[in-house]
Amino acid sequence: MVDLLSSMTLLQIIELGPDTVKVFRQYEQITGSCLLCNNLFDSLESVASQYSLKVDDFINSLQTSNE
């Protein structure tokens, strides 16, 4: 999978790597909200900010999901 950027939307990320859906589902346990329902068109950066997540950890988790 290509390198993910914090400026990418969740939709762009799952298009690039369908396996990232599993990671978003895991994060939903932390956020308590369906990210792929409510934030599909938001950037990873803004989602991380909204839910006080570390964006670098978020990217790493997504990046490794397809490897």
Partner: peptide
């Protein structure tokens, strides 16, 4: 189907 599937299929 639940999100994001309807969006993915449409796109």
């Amino acid at each position: 189907l639940t999100c994001p599937q309807p969006v993915i299929l449409t796109k």
